[in-house]
Amino acid sequence: MNEKTVTFIVDGKEIKARPEQTIMKACDEAGVYIPRLCAFKDLSPFGSCRVCTVKVNGRPQAACTQPVGEGIVVESQTAEIQQIRRNIIDMLFVEGNHFCMFCEKSGNCELQAMAYRLGILAPKFPYMFPVRGVDASHPDIFIDWNRCILCARCIRTSCEIDGKNAYGFIGRGPHKRVATNSSAGLKGTDADVSDKAPANCPVGSLMYKRIGYAVPIGCRLYDKNPIGSDIEMKKTT
C-alpha cells in the first residue's frame, strides 16, 4: 500500500483507513456496520438522525461525519450506545405516524428495519399523533409527511444526483418539515419519475406512485436479513 493510512480501533477491532475517510466509511470497508439512517452511500454526509452516534476517545460523535484519526478508540456496540440508538429510533416512530401495516414501504423501510435490528417491540415514548398531510398533486410522485424522518436524503439526492432543487426544509424545531420548491406543491416543481430522490427516501414518505406492495411479504429487502447485513457480509472476505 503506497497511500498513507491511519489505524484505529472500533469495539476492540483494529481498522485501517485513509486519512480523509469518515469513521463510517472506514468501518463499512472493514465490514463493521454502524447503524444509520440519514447517511447514504452516494450522498454527502449530513449528520441529522444521530443513529450513528459512537464514542470517540470517550466523546460522542456522529460516525457519518467524524473523520478517522490515528489511534482513536471508537465504541459503537456498547450497551450505552445501543440504548441511545434505540431511543432515537423510538423518537422517530412517535414523532410521526408510522402505520407500517398499510405502508407501501414496509419490508423495505430503513426505519422499520433499524427498529427490527435493534430488537424494538414498541417505542417507550408516547405517540404524538401529529396532524400531517400528503402531497399527491404530482402525477408520478407523492409525499406523505406522516412518515418523513427529516433525513434530507431527498433534498441531497435532488441536488447532488438529480441536478435539481425540488425539495428543501422549512420551519424550525418540532415544526420543521420538507417542502417543495414551488408554492403549488410537488406538481409545480421539476421533479419527475426519472428522479432518484424518491428511491433514496429511507421510509415511505417520498414515493413513486403505483408501485406499492410490488414484492411479496417474505421476499422484501429486510424480511430475512437485518439492515447492514450486506456490509457485515464483507467481514468474511
Binding site: N97, H98, F99, C100, M101, F102, A122, Y127, F129, P130, V131, R132
Partner: peptide
C-alpha cells in the same frame, strides 16, 4: 401483553386521531 399493532399504536383506527 399488547398483541398486534392496534394495541400498540392504535393501528388503522388511529387514522382518525388527527
Amino acid at each position: 401483553i399488547s398483541v398486534g399493532d392496534c394495541a400498540i399504536d392504535g393501528g388503522l383506527p388511529a387514522l382518525r386521531n388527527g
